[in-house]
Every structure is written in structure tokens, then in C-alpha cells.
Design a protein around this nucleic acid. Structure first.
Lengths: 236, 236
DNA sequence: CCGGCTGATTGGTATAGACCAGAAGTCTGC
DNA sequence: GCAGACTTCTGGTCTATACCAATCAGCCGG
């Protein structure tokens, strides 16, 4: 083949990874040793590794090295199953870390919910893990009137569960938006990856059955960690 | 700031692009001249450009240079509005090129529709443009019994329109899957971009109201050209 | 046995330069 | 005036090397 060398390298690495995944326990050898093995430079090697990263086969943890990516989590953003539930349903181990609890305004959330820019929200920021890999950070912006004292009682459980059980909210209308992105320096740092790593941004605006705004939700996922799946029946 | 230089460069380029977008008519100056202007190497400059590419601000056309990306197309994969309709509804100009018409088996489509691997399909491959930029290629795999003579009469119009009007098919059940990807060499070539360019893969399996398989649909989008949007009402 | 220090390793960043093939622009000859 | 040949420019790829800062493993002392 007359392809570029880094593309050949990509294929060789792909098979090499397949064969040695178990042996290496998920972590690839050092870039320098791989570059030496294929008689090339780190620059070219990294170009090949980046290809595989784009495919979602491997990923890197900032300054720690390259790792083989686990299977993607299947996720249906139109359903309101909690994160913990569907992660466990796929035989994986979920975990959540709460990063921030505060009260403040957030114009993008306000606009998405049709509220004035200075509308205060209860802000919950959390990081979610699957099998001890951080796969997303998210910010939840809850309208205070809908869930008083939320910030005092919240400690990492399912927010939608709380809204339903404690305040009886019926999450009837959702408008969902998904865009590919490059993770901002802040999001990247919270996910332990390099700034600019490919991500997927999922936003949801949620209203109740009387069109009253309840909550706005901003998720930043690592691009290789999920597979979005939606099942629909009936003409739309 | 003590950030890496390429990150500072990214910001400088961002404002430079904002200011000169009109002047440059959408095309950035040559890499060499940009590198000189910022007193750095092409390698470092390209690192910064790649950041902006990841954000979807700019993109490149293979060997032709860097271009400012137009606004993303808003797309709802759960609705069956035709491509031409929703592109025009957003004030843009759609175009379609048919790349291939053939009849053959395709195991992935067969599996998604619950048919045997050797099931033959009518295969339509087409490239779609928005305002003269190729933004996706797709393969449609139609079950022959549902649409006899499709390959003889098809010439670029809306497939779902045809299925509905000519064969009276009611596209009742869809199972949709979205995954980020790196474009394969073939897909990349058909979209005039470099292999490995970030893309979004959207697959749809479509059954009628009696659960009979009709069609399987594989779309490969440039990652920066769309914004997926879904509106739902009612509990799910 | 545990915790903090330390040095080797490794990924992240950057420089400088080179060659090739495709694209674009120019020139030429009919 | 136009088609085709030629030249230049430009992005794509690659080499070789270097330094920094974060990580990690191992050592040392309490």
C-alpha cells in the first residue's frame, strides 16, 4: 500500500492492541518504547495513536499514558432512568462525585427555560464514573421554587428521583440538544484529560406538564465513552 | 497566563478569525504565513488550528486549506422530515449526489433489522450538501420486497417520501444509534476531507407498524456540521 | 509499617527543517 | 478566446531533537 506511514502504523497498532490487551492490563507501553519498536519518531507515533483515539479505541489520561477504552455505555437521553440504574443494568459500576453546590444565576440555563437572565438557580456540579473511569461532568440548574432546600439535602443521589419523590414533579417536556465539542480547559481538568479532548455536549431543558420550567442540565461526556440509543414507536 | 503557547495561539486565532472572517471570505491564510505572523512553527500552529477544528469553528478541505465553518444544521433524527425540507426551512441550500445504486447483502444492516446475514438489499449511497459543502455520506439498505424497482426509479429524491407515497409504507418503529467516530478513508474521501477527521455516525433501523423490516440507514456526518435536537412531551 | 522525600520515567510541548503530491494560478500555443 | 501544459503554492507527512512538568516507584527515616 502507498498510504501514509502513520496510517499503516495505525493498523499495526490496532492489531497489536487486540493481541496484547490482556497482557498490558489496559495500559499501553510508553510512547518512546512504541516509537522505537516501530522505528519511527514519537511525533509520527502520536499521530497514529490520535487516530485510534478518534475512533474511540484508546484514550489518554492526562500525563499518565494511553489506555484501552472500555465498551461504550449505551445511553438514552430521552428516558429518565437514573445514571446509576442504567449503568448497573449494563453490568458496570457507577459512581458520582459532587463537585459543587451553590446558588447563582446562569444566563444560558435561563434562556433555555424561558426565564430572565438574572434568574437564580440552585447549581449542582458533579462528576460521574463508570468502572472508576470519569466519563462525564455535568451541571444541573434547578429553579429554586420547584425544589426548596435542595442544596441542603442533596448528597449525590439521583436528582430526578428526588424531584419526583420529594416534590412530586412530573418531568413532561424536554428539549434535548447534542453537539460535538472540544472539552474546555475546566471540563477537561475535571475529567483528568488534556484540554481540547473530543467530547459530546448534551443539554436538556425540562418543563413539567403545565409548561413550568423545572431544570436545565448540561452534560459533557468523553466522546468515546457513550453510544446514544433511542427507540421510538409510532409516526412522528 | 502560564498556559501552553498553542493554547494562547488558539485564543489569538479565534479573535483574529472573528475579525477577519468577512475579509478572508471564509478561507484562512496559508499555514506558513500564519506561522510566520505568530513567530512559531507550522507544527505548533497546526496544533492550535486543530483545537479550533475540534470546537467546530473551522474545518479543512483536503489539501485546499482551512475554512471557517458555517452554523451547524439543526437536525432531529427522530422525525421523518426529508433532508431537503429541513435544510431549506433553515434558510440553507440542500443538494444530493447519488454515488451508487446496487443490489447486495450487508450483514450489519441485516442484523439491525433481524434478517439473515445473506439477505440482499437495494443499496443507495448518496452524498448530501448544505450550501455546497458536503456534510454527510449515507448508505440506505432497503428490503427489496418493500420497494420493488426502487433502483430503477430512484434519482435523488426523498427516499422516505417515495416509500410513503409509492408503496404506502408507514414508518412506525425506529431504533436510532449515534456514535462519534473517525471517518474511514473511504468516507473521508467521499467528503473531501482527511482520513480520520472527526465524524458522527447515525444509524437507523426502520420497521413498519406490523414490525416488518423496511430499511436500514447509515449516516456519516462531519462532526462540526450538525446540532442534534429532539423535542419530547409526555412521560417516557 | 507508614509517610514523606527523591530521582528516573514519561507524556506534553516546541523548534527547525525537509520532501512530496495535489490544487491553484499562469502562461502558451492554437 | 479557449484548452491544455507548466509552475508555484500549499497542505500532508516525516525526521531528529530538546526541555519541562507531572507521575510514579523506590528509598529512607521516623
Amino acid at each position: 500500500m502507498s498510504d501514509a506511514y502513520y496510517l499503516q502504523l495505525t493498523e499495526q497498532l490496532r492489531t497489536l492492541i487486540d493481541q496484547n490487551a490482556a497482557l498490558w492490563e489496559g495500559k499501553l507501553p510508553a510512547e518512546r518504547s512504541l516509537a522505537e519498536r516501530f522505528a519511527t519518531t514519537r511525533v509520527t507515533l502520536r499521530q497514529a495513536l490520535s487516530q485510534l483515539e478518534g475512533e474511540g479505541l484508546i484514550h489518554r489520561s492526562n500525563r499518565r499514558g494511553w489506555f484501552i477504552s472500555p465498551a461504550r455505555l449505551v445511553y438514552d437521553p430521552t428516558r429518565d432512568a437514573g445514571f446509576n440504574d442504567y449503568v448497573r443494568a449494563q453490568g458496570r459500576q457507577p459512581r458520582t462525585a459532587v463537585l459543587k453546590l451553590e446558588s447563582r444565576a446562569h444566563p444560558p440555563a435561563a434562556r433555555a427555560l424561558g426565564l430572565p437572565d438574572d434568574q437564580p438557580f440552585q447549581h449542582i456540579r458533579r462528576r460521574r464514573y463508570v468502572d472508576d473511569r470519569a466519563v462525564l461532568v455535568e451541571s444541573l440548574w434547578v429553579v429554586p421554587e420547584r425544589a426548596p432546600e435542595l442544596l441542603d439535602i442533596y448528597s449525590g443521589q439521583s436528582l430526578w428521583g428526588l424531584l419526583r419523590e420529594r416534590w412530586g414533579h412530573y418531568l413532561a417536556n424536554r428539549s434535548i440538544r447534542m453537539v460535538s465539542e472540544a472539552l474546555s480547559p475546566m471540563d477537561a481538568e475535571e475529567l483528568f484529560v488534556a484540554p481540547g479532548t473530543a467530547g459530546l455536549n448534551i443539554n436538556r431543558a425540562i418543563l413539567d406538564d403545565q409548561q413550568r420550567p423545572i431544570e436545565f442540565d448540561e452534560e459533557h461526556w468523553l466522546h468515546d465513552s457513550l453510544c446514544i440509543s433511542v427507540e421510538l414507536s409510532g409516526q412522528r
